[in-house]
Amino acid sequence: MSEAGRSVLAAREVVKKFSGPDGSVIEVLNGANLSVSQGESLSIRGESGSGKSTFLNVISWLDQPDGGSVVWDGTEVPRISSREIARRRSEVLGFVFQSYCLMPELDVLENVLMAARVLGRIGRPEKERAENLLCQVGLQDRLKQLPGKLSGGERQRVAIARALINRPSVLLADEPTGNLDEKTADTVMELLLHLCRDETAALVLVTHNPLFAKRADRQVTLSGGRFNDQ
């Protein structure tokens, strides 16, 4: 299943360096290669500080790599204009963060719709899709609630709905269950995997939890700035 589909997201020989506080150069990514096929789920593990978040930033072009290339849906990212990058990013990628990142002024439905708004798509179909997604994450009764009044698990479910509204090819999740207790984490993880499968979105899941990692179709480990397939 994993090798069969076409690649929707790929990193080739990606290098990313940071300058440390004492002026020394920290090479976080050092020729990392990774390809994600359509609809597959992939988990990334690695020690803290191994560069998992950095990799997600680079592969979503929120941070430019110092070497190598990133390919979205068959297009090399540096080849397109910055204006185009912003638009394509929101079409190709969806994000779920450890710290939910909901806007406190917007209610649940508005938060989900915000991702569509940025693309200039805000109409009946988007609203219906948002309501539908929120229904699937079990928040159909909370549409008008502000995030401040939701539990952590509920907030993360809103974030998942938001990440999926634009029908991305890939969903990037950076420790989505990091702030949740075990039971809630399990529900959220189940939802995430389930929804991605339903939406045929690929999932790139960064997690410390080996049990969650094993639920993915494929598992890789980041160490020494490279991926080791397992």
Binding site: R83, R89, S90, E91, F95, C101
Partner: peptide, 8 residues
């Protein structure tokens, strides 16, 4: 987050 959502 806005940048991640595609804002310039």
């Amino acid at each position: 987050l806005l940048a991640a959502l595609g804002a310039r």
